[in-house]
Design a protein around this nucleic acid. Structure first.
Length: 138
DNA sequence: ATTCTGACTTGCT
DNA sequence: AAGCAAGCCAGAA
């Protein structure tokens, strides 16, 4: 996975405001490159320095293995949740999910501009590399 | 080229 | 809610 891709993913995640979230697939769509799995891989390996809990599965479940820690962040940020999170909030246990329809980030116009810029930059740098590789192959 | 492996997704039981 | 199968995209062996 190219560093340009990882950086683009992280830039997008950093723009998600507290209390909002995006699914892995959402991020991939915004980038216009790769898929949900790629975003997941990038976050798994390089996401520790950004608000990683704001990117999660399409069904509203937090990233595998990080549910407890994610829940504390959701409670702090007031992220819309569904389920029995109240009862076990302290331990991060119980059945709960982020209410994606309510919590999904709706970027403002300027945010959209910034996101477009990120996607565009990513596209051009990836294109350059593929051209360079074609040259090598021949 | 083939197979396996993922912080994935969608549809169906 | 939980499990499964398929489809998905990329990297590694």
């Amino acid at each position: 996975m190219r560093v340009e891709y990882v950086e683009a993913v992280l830039e997008v995640v950093e723009r998600i405001p507290a209390g909002s979230v995006l699914s892995y697939g959402d991020v991939a769509d915004l980038l216009g490159s790769g898929g949900a799995r790629q975003v997941g891989t990038a976050m798994s390996r390089h996401g520790s320095a950004v608000p990683w809990w704001r990117v999660l599965r399409a069904g509203g479940h937090a990233p595998k293995g990080l549910e407890a820690e994610a829940l504390t962040h959701y409670l702090q940020e007031g992220t819309p949740l569904r389920g029995d999170y109240l009862r076990f909030a302290g331990m991060g246990e119980g059945r709960w999910r982020v209410d994606l329809t309510a919590a999904r980030w709706m970027p403002s116009e300027e945010d959209l501009d910034a996101l477009d810029l990120i996607a565009e930059h990513l596209e051009t740098s990836l294109r350059k590399l593929s051209v360079a590789n074609d040259g090598m192959t021949e």
